[in-house]
């Protein structure tokens, strides 16, 4: 514990002595995590929108009028057993009329009550929007089917765009994780190089590898955490400003329909940035210091190889 406090003090001292190096370090990690965070928000927004739109893609299977209750039950059973079907709901002719009347305020329900032209139907939710057409094709083969109707092509087009967006975001995030890791490696390598004499002295007076590693690991964790904090504050500020700007437009009404839970999104964003910053900071520093320290080991291994050659 004594050594821990000493090493922590050494780390604070090192921050004071190499200000420019550490400023560059902090800025690089912050920018990497900021870009990563922005892509994460786009990814989450895209994924939620994709899911919501997918859920809204219902298949309506309209039934012939002459079907008996037994036939309808059998048909419902057949649809339920189909692959990629999440839920099936029967909508009677009366229910269809009630819904239609509610939507068409200009029509008087009573005018149509004597002769209801609307067919009964099954409203099906597919488990995967990708396989809607498969489900439709199977439903069309059923004998009681009058007609089918499902999500418009526009919605499908949106889904495709959103899917591409999600994939692009995932790839970019993966690349940014690698970039952040390599940034931390490079900066710690500079820090190690700047303190190579100190490391040499530490080795000569008998410091263990962990004793030498800790100040650099503190550095990695500290800048990972700091970068994550700053990136989070900036993204949070941007989202809040965007929301306020959108509130003045018609888009505000469209946003709630996506059902994005903001507190959940911010929590996930903070966890991702802080977790990633700390983990990448820890492992990035550890790897870089180890590489530096291993040179001594490698020299000794080389000597052992020479020893074997001489024998």
């Amino acid at each position: 514990m004594r050594s821990f406090f000493f090493l922590f003090r050494e780390f604070v001292e090192s921050l004071r002595h190499s200000r420019f190096l550490h400023l560059t370090y902090g800025a690089q990690v912050t920018i990497s995590l900021l870009v990563l965070g922005i892509f994460f928000v786009i990814l989450v927004g895209g994924a939620i929108a994709w899911k919501k739109l997918g859920d809204q893609l219902e298949i309506h299977v309209f039934l012939k009028d002459d079907l008996s209750a037994k036939q309808i039950n059998a048909m419902e059973q057949d649809i339920t057993n189909m692959e990629f079907v999440k839920a099936v709901k029967f909508r009677s002719k009366d229910e269809a009329l009630a819904i239609f009347s509610a939507r068409s305020s200009t029509l008087e329900l009573n005018d149509l009550l004597e002769n209801n032209p609307l067919p009964a139907s099954f409203v099906i939710q597919a488990s995967d929007p990708e396989h809607i057409e498969d489900v439709v094709a199977q439903c069309e083969k059923l004998t009681g089917t009058l007609a089918t109707r499902y999500g418009s092509q526009v919605v499908e087009k949106y889904l495709k765009i959103l899917m591409i967006l999600v994939i692009v975001c995932l790839i970019t995030i993966s690349l940014l994780v690698l970039f952040t890791y390599s940034s931390i490696n490079n900066i710690i390598a500079l820090s190690v190089y700047a303190r190579r004499t100190e490391i040499r002295i530490m080795q000569l007076v008998g410091a263990t590898w962990w004793f030498i590693r800790w100040p650099f690991i503190f550095e990695g964790i500290f800048f990972g955490f700091l970068g994550a904090g700053i990136a989070y504050i900036i993204i949070f500020g941007l989202l809040v400003s965007m929301k306020q700007a959108l509130a003045l437009t018609d888009l505000a009404q469209a946003m709630p329909s996506l059902g994005v839970d903001e507190s959940y999104l911010f929590m996930a964003l903070a966890s991702l940035l802080v977790g990633l910053g700390i983990v990448v900071g820890f492992f990035g520093s550890l790897r870089t210091v180890n590489n530096f320290l291993r040179r001594e080991l490698e020299l000794q291994l080389e000597s052992i190889k020479v020893m074997k050659q001489l024998k």
């Binding site: 004594r2 002295i201 007076v205 008998g206 410091a207």
Partner: peptide, 10 residues
């Protein structure tokens, strides 16, 4: 510094 390395007390 050399004493800290071997874990000496303050």
């Amino acid at each position: 510094y050399a004493l800290h390395i071997r874990g000496a007390t303050q």
